[in-house]
Design a protein around this nucleic acid. Structure first.
Lengths: 96, 96
DNA sequence: ATAATATATGAACGATTGCTCAACTATTCA
DNA sequence: TGAATAGTTGAGCAATCGTTCATATATTAT
């Protein structure tokens, strides 16, 4: 089965979403449920700016969804595929 | 479930293997079966050097295995987990 | 021996990434 | 209204990445 260049790029972009430890930790938090930017930043000991920058990328890839409530913005996973990829990867890292 | 920093890094490294279109295409070729460096290079229209550099990374992550036969080196997937991640990602890109 | 072939490797380069910092918008509170 | 809070954004910078190019190593053929 021959992979088109477009699909290769799309696949690479998808996996890029989980190719950084900060983003992996963000995803792992969001698997527990939606969370505000500042809660994520505090829990992960990252600056709010850094978290926000990463969330923007995840949002653009439609892996994460934003819900605004007052002055807070709550993020959650937009797609259970990501959670599945995550848990499959974790399984590989832990056993195997 | 709290993710340790080590596991976050290991997960990120695993997904990094598929975070580049060239590597995705290499993996997609190797799913079909083992292949020499020059065959990969020709099929993917990449230089042998570029392919070799990428294969080294994949080898170091133990996602790919090398078998030397004469002056050729045949590469194959070392781990069916990668193929599973790949096809799961492809599924997400194609549908969903 | 020499030449040719297959692959690996290091240096160097531009491109991309992930962060910080400062400035900005939007919302709430007093 | 003005101050405080939550988040976003752009510029800038160091670090990393993926490639090319030249060179090196290993194997085979002559």
């Amino acid at each position: 089965m021959n992979l088109t260049e477009l699909k290769a790029i799309q696949l690479a972009e998808l996996f890029s979403a989980l190719s950084d430890a900060s983003r992996v930790r963000i995803i792992s938090q969001l698997i527990e449920g939606e969370m505000s930017v500042s809660a994520l930043a505090e829990g992960l000991k990252m600056s709010e700016s850094a978290v926000s920058h990463q969330l923007r990328g995840l949002r653009q890839m439609r892996l994460v969804r934003a819900r605004k409530d007052g002055r807070q913005v709550f993020y959650s996973l937009d797609d259970d595929h990501v959670a599945k990829l995550y848990s499959m990867g974790l399984d590989h890292v832990e056993h195997g």
